[in-house]
């Protein structure tokens, strides 16, 4: 399901003294089955942009076309259908848990999709497994008895259970410990590889973005600065820093090593790649 964003502009409180332009004529196409990262400082327009992708916000002008359908030209019933296919995981999604048991909470979405009880059950079982929890152990527990990391997983499972073709995650790992962070990201990646769904990941961790995504969308003051591969984006260190961002630590290291090893590559953003590149130049 490709997502085309066309001349998208959003102005908050237009005509009032608080008028603020959050998005300024955004034009991009997100290919079907791609894994995209969105980076940008607080207030750069990331959250405003993703809230347009499933019609939570209406644009001031421009539109979003999903699978050939202009989402803002649809009737409400059709928009609801569309939302079932575009899953949005908000920041701190565990704050939205509300049911008595984990099973009921995860089942809420697919139930509203009008699936049979068996189908719902299957979806719940699978998505709880997908986020790395033991179904039998957690299904009857109250979500509020779980640890923070487990609650986060249950909340993500609730969105996965709707089997969205486009999955949007707004900082899914904020506040999680290193293992929780790595596990959730690994599961998202595995699922993307298996289901070939489109994934859009908003993150402040340049390390995580460097490890996972195929293309990075860089935003600043409501505009697109880059929409390109990590290799291209993370070599623009000066521009990224100027707009409040950074590159992974290993990328800074490679640039520093260039003095001694002029042939060293700079488009390196994981520890693994850095190791291989350093071995290559040292061993010659």
């Amino acid at each position: 399901m490709p997502v085309e964003i066309k001349n998208l502009t959003h102005i908050y409180s237009q005509g009032s003294p608080f008028e603020f332009q959050a998005l300024d004529d955004i034009n991009i196409t997100i290919e079907d089955g791609s894994f995209i990262g969105i980076i940008g400082h607080t207030g750069s327009g990331k959250s405003t942009l993703i809230q347009h992708l499933n019609g939570l916000l209406n644009p001031t002008s421009g539109t979003v076309i999903v699978d050939g359908m202009d989402i803002f030209a649809q009737k409400k019933s059709e928009l609801i259908q569309l939302r079932h296919r575009i899953g949005l995981v908000f920041q701190y999604p565990e704050h939205q848990l509300f049911e008595e048991t984990v099973h009921k909470d995860v089942a809420f979405g697919p139930k509203n999709q009008g699936l049979t009880e068996e189908e719902v059950d299957d979806r719940v079982r699978n998505s709880i497994k997908m986020v790395g929890l033991d179904y039998d152990e957690v299904k009857d527990k109250s979500p509020f008895e779980l640890s923070g990391g487990q609650m986060r997983r249950v909340a993500i499972a609730g969105v996965l259970a709707m089997e969205p073709s486009v999955l949007i995650l707004d900082e899914p790992t904020a506040g999680l410990d290193p293992r929780g962070r790595d596990e959730i990201l690994a599961q998202i990646k595995t699922m993307h590889q298996k289901n070939k769904n489109t994934v859009i990941l908003v993150s402040h961790s340049m390390e995580d973005i460097g490890k996972l995504v195929e293309k990075i969308l860089v935003m600043n003051e409501g505009k697109i600065v880059y929409f390109d591969t990590p290799n291209r984006v993370f070599t623009e260190i000066e521009t990224l820093e100027k707009i409040g961002l950074a590159v992974p630590e290993v990328t800074y290291l490679m640039r520093r090593l260039k003095k001694k090893y002029p042939e060293i590559r700079e488009d390196i953003f994981t520890v693994e790649a850095a190791k291989n590149e350093i071995l290559r130049v040292i061993r010659g």
Binding site: P178, E207, P248, L253, E272, K275, I278, L279
Partner: peptide, 22 residues
């Protein structure tokens, strides 16, 4: 790592390089 934590990227890189005999 065994207790779910991590080390700074440069420490991890040093560890990996040492494993390669550097």
């Amino acid at each position: 790592k065994k207790i779910g934590l991590d080390v700074p990227p440069m420490t991890e890189l040093a560890y990996e390089l040492r494993n390669e005999g550097i």
